[in-house]
């Protein structure tokens, strides 16, 4: 059962990703990306990480992608890549290197790592919100606090970057 769900979800995730990359319309790309994120969230559930699955859907597929869509709409940038490719060999080389990277990744996935698969009983409890939060607020307390400061900086930075010059505004007005 789990295997079937895995393969189905995996295929959906891959197709969604490909569609995201290939779609000429940025809005479509964003929607495909949301689909990809949701299918990955399903995989998280299979990996016994329900908390992160929830975070994935709410934060990633929800907040972040909404931000993306908002910006696309705001700028009117949904159109496909404009003009011609300035560096002719960029695309073939990129695809070639991508294939090499994929081969290497596959090699790593099946030959490079030597990890025993845990039994279900052992791995049962690692993803519950209680476990995660107890680790987060004890072992990773300091990084957690730093992340909060990072987010604050990001907020301030965003405000500064998008704020229009006051003098500039007055001129326009």
């Amino acid at each position: 059962m789990a295997t079937v769900i895995f393969y189905l979800t995996a295929i959906v995730a891959i197709l969604a990703a490909l569609a995201m990359v290939l779609s000429p319309n940025a809005v479509h790309s964003a929607l495909f990306l949301i689909l990809n994120f949701c299918s990955v969230a399903v995989l998280y559930l299979l990996l016994r990480a329900p908390f992160l699955a929830a975070v994935q859907v709410t934060v990633y597929a929800g907040a972040i992608m909404v931000l993306f869509l908002f910006v696309i709409m705001l700028l009117g940038a949904e159109k496909a890549d404009l003009g011609s490719e300035p560096v002719g060999w960029q695309k073939p080389v990129a695809i070639l290197l991508g294939i090499v990277l994929l081969v290497e990744g596959g090699f790593v996935a099946y030959r490079g790592i030597r990890l025993p698969d845990m039994t279900a009983a052992q791995a049962n409890d690692i993803g519950s919100p209680i476990t995660i939060s107890s680790v987060l607020f004890s072992k990773y307390l300091l990084p957690f606090e730093i992340i909060s400061i990072l987010l604050l900086i990001a907020i301030v930075g965003t405000v500064v970057l998008t704020r229009r010059d006051r003098a500039h505004l007055r001129e326009e007005a």
């Binding site: 560096v87 960029q90 990129a94 290197l97 090499v100 990277l101 290497e104 090699f107 790593v108 490079g112």
Partner: peptide, 23 residues
């Protein structure tokens, strides 16, 4: 060249090479 994507491509060349070394 001024093209960010070209720089990213260089970057990828490095990544592939390093990973290839380990493989």
């Amino acid at each position: 060249s001024g093209y960010v994507r070209s720089y990213a491509l260089m970057f990828l060349v490095g990544v592939v090479a390093v990973l290839g070394y380990f493989v």
